[in-house]
Amino acid sequence: MRSTLKDTPGPLVRAWVNLEGKTLTQVALDAGLPPASCRIALRTAHYAGEAAIARFLGKAPEDLWPLRLADRAERKNKARQAAAHREKRSAS
Rank of each mutant, 00 (worst) to 15 (best):
M1A: 07
M1R: 05
M1N: 02
T4L: 12
L5G: 00
K6S: 08
K6M: 09
D7S: 03
P9H: 04
P9N: 08
G10R: 05
L12I: 10
L12Q: 13
L12K: 11
W16Y: 09
W16F: 06
V17C: 06
V17I: 13
N18Q: 15
L19S: 09
E20R: 13
T23K: 05
L24S: 08
L24I: 13
L24N: 07
L24E: 13
T25H: 05
V27H: 04
V27C: 02
V27T: 08
L29P: 00
D30S: 11
A31G: 07
A31C: 09
S37F: 03
C38P: 07
C38F: 02
C38L: 02
R39D: 15
R39H: 11
L42W: 03
T44E: 15
Y47T: 11
A54W: 01
R55S: 06
F56A: 10
F56P: 02
L57H: 03
L57F: 01
K59I: 03
A60S: 14
D63P: 00
W65H: 00
P66L: 11
P66W: 00
L67S: 08
L69C: 07
L69W: 05
L69Q: 08
R72L: 14
A73F: 04
E74A: 08
R75P: 06
K78T: 03
K78V: 00
K78N: 12
R80K: 14
Q81A: 14
Q81C: 03
A82V: 05
A83V: 03
A83I: 09
A84G: 02
R86E: 15
E87P: 00
K88A: 12
K88H: 12
R89C: 13
A91H: 05
